[in-house]
Simulated scan of single mutants.
Amino acid sequence: MGKVVLVTGAARQLGGRFVRRVQRDPEVERVIAVDAVAPPHGLGSAEFVRTDIRQSSIARVLAEHAVDTVVHLAVTGGSPGPGGGTGSAVKETNVIGTMQLLGACQKSPTVRRLVVKSSTYVYGGASRDPAVFTETTQSKSLPAGGFAKDAVEVESYVRGFARRRPDVAVCVLRFANILGPYADSALAEYFSMSVMPTVLGYDPRLQFVHEDDVLDVLRLAAGEPQRGTLNSGTFNIAGDGVLLLSQCARRLGRPTVPLLLPAVTWVGSALRAVGVTDFSPEQIRLLTHGRVVETSQMREVLGFKPMYTTAETFADFARSRGTGLLPPERVGQAVDRVGAMLNGHSPDVGVAGAEEGAQR
Rank of each mutant, 00 (worst) to 15 (best):
C105L: 02
R24M: 05
D216A: 14
R128L: 06
A334D: 11
R219P: 04
S108P: 10
R272G: 11
V242R: 11
Q106E: 15
R250H: 09
K305M: 14
S127V: 11
E189F: 06
D278T: 13
E64C: 08
G268T: 05
I284R: 09
V351Y: 12
V95R: 01
V338F: 12
S88N: 08
S139T: 15
L206I: 12
A222P: 13
G81L: 00
S118G: 03
Y123C: 08
G290Q: 06
A238T: 07
A273Y: 06
V168S: 09
L73G: 08
P225I: 05
R60D: 13
P255R: 07
P39S: 05
V257K: 08
R30E: 12
P82W: 01
A263T: 14
A354T: 12
G201E: 08
G83M: 01
R285G: 11
H72F: 05
A89K: 03
E27G: 10
V338H: 14
K91A: 09
G228A: 04
E211C: 11
G77A: 14
E153G: 00
A59Q: 06
V170W: 04
L187I: 12
I32N: 13
L200A: 15
V274A: 00
G253R: 02
V214F: 04
V116H: 02
S280D: 10
P258W: 04
R60M: 00
T265L: 00
L215M: 11
V152R: 09
G290D: 01
T8F: 04
R285P: 09
